[in-house]
Design a protein around this nucleic acid. Structure first.
Lengths: 231, 231
DNA sequence: TGCGACTGATTGAATGATCAGTCAATAGAC
DNA sequence: GTCTATTGACTGATCATTCAATCAGTCGCA
């Protein structure tokens, strides 16, 4: 999909084309480029980072970058997709094998906060730089954000159906939780010196849970916490 | 304060110096520049906006901008201070004359969300562009954010002392609420077509309030809502 | 009142630096 | 010997910033 006239090809599902054909080489070089770019973009910003900076940190020449990417903006897209795909990969695995709806919900929130923590630089970058993408690519990123939200929404709906979560507006509640997770990254300059991630997650989860649960849900939540503590 | 060797002077409390001396003229021109820059920075971003763009939209020449500002970054600082000062001006006035601690808290949250809504472009810009400032200026902005948070923290503490709010971590609860307000701007691409600001505020406030209040607080909150509805 | 300095505001063309993106040349694999 | 990957010097465009020139008042003085 999305070849162009010349003979530049290969896509790897991101919409970014490469001159080099060998998929293994493309993957290797792109991951070098993305690693370097993530570091530089998040310390200096997209516009202050030059392709030469990225190439140097990645240990390749500036011209070579353009064998794997058509333009600088492509690099930004690859960086952002890299973070977002980490969400989609890591959050679902966290709840495998948990049956209790409340347990699944709490674990999803916990996992979301922890992925964000691991990818703090990239998470903040998404807020800073998504607007630097072309509109269709910006939309792609937003689309992926919605898919991550859907993971959370699914658990909330399950709890709601089971009468454990109050019938509040789902969109509002989902973003409420999303902003808790993102807030840890966005406000890390504040929290870093005051709270551990564990404390942040515990306190934040407690507030939303109490706010969102029905009395029946609250009972299950208390039971879940008891079980966690002793285990 | 903060003159420099030459004879360039005038400060107006922002740390940005101007060649022109007349404070009234400085204020007038800077407000033209800030208005133009706010619009352009938030649609195109800081780096994609040229001084010429700003000058043109402000109806002046590009050279004149440099009579009121030393460098492009100064313009960004002025834009960000303009938004943040709006918070500090508008939030406190909202609770004048309210005695009930719960009423004050709810009103503060409401006011915070509404200032953010009015200054949506600037609020998002703060997330996108604060890192483009020099470190001391970035700190100035963070300092001002803390001052805004303190307004909220004061109301929360009052409620806590009165036994209306549970003894949760204040910093976490403050940022919880801050992220609700900022979330409206940051995620307006999502909410815009789905919810009104009023609904967003009502639903969000309901969730945090239920999450944070003691039974006594909940009673007062219900009473406050009843009073609001009939009034 | 009328006129010629003087002061400070304003203009926009010119300068110089910075980079994204290109491409001719080279290296290395098979 | 062919084909692909890689290099890095080069080009052209884009701005931030400067500055010489102009303009608009204002004041002093006849």
């Amino acid at each position: 999909m999305m070849d162009n006239a010349d003979h530049k090809t290969i896509d790897l599902g991101s919409g970014v084309s490469s001159v080099v054909e060998d998929p293994l080489l493309v993957q290797k070089r792109r991951s070098q480029i993305v690693a370097a770019a993530t570091e530089l973009f998040s310390t200096q910003g997209f516009y202050r980072t030059t392709i030469k900076d990225i190439a140097k940190l990645a240990g390749i020449s500036s011209g070579l970058v353009y064998q794997y990417v058509r333009e600088k903006e492509d690099v930004l897209l690859l960086v952002l997709l890299d973070v977002i795909d980490a969400y989609a990969r890591e959050i679902p695995t966290s709840i495998i094998g948990i049956a209790d709806p409340i347990g699944r919900l709490v674990t999803t929130i916990d996992a979301y906060c922890r992925v964000i923590d691991r990818h703090r630089a990239g998470a903040v970058l998404a807020y800073r730089s998504t607007k630097s993408l072309s509109p269709p690519r910006r939309q792609l990123i937003q689309q992926k954000e919605l898919e991550t939200n859907a993971l959370l929404a699914a658990e909330l709906k399950a709890c709601m159906r089971a009468g454990l979560v109050r019938k509040v507006n789902i969109d509002v509640l989902v973003y409420h939780i999303v902003m808790i997770a993102h807030g840890w990254a966005l406000k890390s300059w504040f929290f870093k010196s005051r709270l551990s991630l564990d404390t942040y997650i515990r306190e934040s989860t407690d507030i939303v849970m109490v706010g969102a649960l029905t009395p029946a849900g609250a009972k299950r939540y208390a039971a879940w916490l008891r079980k966690k503590k002793q285990q």
